[in-house]
């Protein structure tokens, strides 16, 4: 396996993943009321690849979105 090629290919994936996770975490920090404890959401966002942030954006916030 050509390792440099693999790294070049994976860099965009990692960057996209990072943007997603950071956006979710910042949004979590700015949300006053969440469904369930905040520390649990931090774990979900960090450890469930791709699905964690989506689940947070849709079901995480309480109030504006019921």
């Amino acid at each position: 396996m050509d390792n440099t090629l693999l790294i070049q290919l994976l860099v965009p994936v990692i960057i996209l993943q990072l943007i997603l996770v950071v956006t979710a975490l910042v949004s979590l920090k700015n949300t006053a009321y969440t469904n369930g404890p905040k520390w649990l959401w931090v774990l979900i966002i960090l450890f469930f690849n791709l699905i964690g942030p989506i689940v947070f954006f849709i079901f995480g916030k309480r109030g504006r979105r019921t």
């Binding site: 996209l16 993943q17 943007i19 997603l20 979710a24 791709l50």
Partner: peptide, 12 residues
């Protein structure tokens, strides 16, 4: 934040 996460999810 839908404008941010929807394109990223599709791209990934």
């Amino acid at each position: 934040k839908k404008v941010i996460w929807l394109p990223i999810v599709f791209m990934l």
